[in-house]
Design a binder for these strands. Sequence first.
DNA 1: CCGACTTTTCAGAAATTACTGAACAGTCAG
DNA 2: CTGACTGTTCAGTAATTTCTGAAAAGTCGG
Lengths: 163, 163
Amino acid sequence: MFDILSTVEAQATDRHQQWRAAERLALTLIEGGMQRMTARTLAVFLFTDQDSVTAGEIADRLEASAGSISAAIKSLATVGLIERLPAPGSRREHYRLRDDAWATLFTSQNTVIAAMLQAAAAGLAVTDEGDPAHRRLAQMHAFYDFLLGELPALLRRWHQQSG
Amino acid sequence: MFDILSTVEAQATDRHQQWRAAERLALTLIEGGMQRMTARTLAVFLFTDQDSVTAGEIADRLEASAGSISAAIKSLATVGLIERLPAPGSRREHYRLRDDAWATLFTSQNTVIAAMLQAAAAGLAVTDEGDPAHRRLAQMHAFYDFLLGELPALLRRWHQQSG
DNA sequence: CCGACTTTTCAGAAATTACTGAACAGTCAG
DNA sequence: CTGACTGTTCAGTAATTTCTGAAAAGTCGG
């Protein structure tokens, strides 16, 4: 009887809940080390009901300045999480989350791991065999060497399973 | 002929190089998201030629306040990277890097991954099937679910190989 | 090529975070 | 139990980071 009305109410509730869930996810990303505005921007890319969004739309949604959104988009694009869409006739740039965004985000850890491995190697090179520091650095080196070797196979399994 | 002299000189150089390598490793850790003083403290634990160190020794080495070192040690102990040693007769507390420190550090990522998984699930619960956001959240959920499943086996392989 | 609209850049303001220093608490020798 | 020494806590400050707002640059239709 009042199906239409209740549907409208439910949708309004859903929108609110979705917005809350988006902000909550942003907090998780921030907790994990991501910049505040970059995290909130990424959350918009995830939760929008459109196929793509513009910088202006994000700024409106987050009530943030165009400048900070521009920086956030640049940052997300640099690590490969989002992509610029071939302009669909509009003057404004459209962006969307890439399909393999999360695997990409995870892969960017490779850089960190490689840096740790290199730091350990540098330490090994300037310490003597007998020095306790040498043993510790060797353990560190072994672990990150192992990790760096395992990650490609891990990602291959993922692409196999999902693709 | 001048072996003793050159050895002394080499050692002095090594100490300097070791100190440089330690600070460099600290920078890598900071880059990866660790607090500045916590990273520098961890570097001391790695590069010291002693079996264990005290808070005072670290403060001297880093020329930092006792307060900041205390906070750093607490932080490192909380995530399980260092351990308090059974007091060897001294009044001062001795700490050292744990043997499985690096695996522990990596494992602490599990928390982040679980949080991401939960955030994705929360998003799925408040979006409709047809909504593009639902599809994106499903992809995110699938990836972190996969990761969470793979990591235990990864660490098992590590312990098998190293132990 | 012009004019309107969008995005980017950047200096300065605001907010957050990290460190210090001093007071407090804990512990062990005597 | 006392005194001396080490570690911890916390308020205030210093430094860094992040955001804004406005000006500059870029882009596309006309």
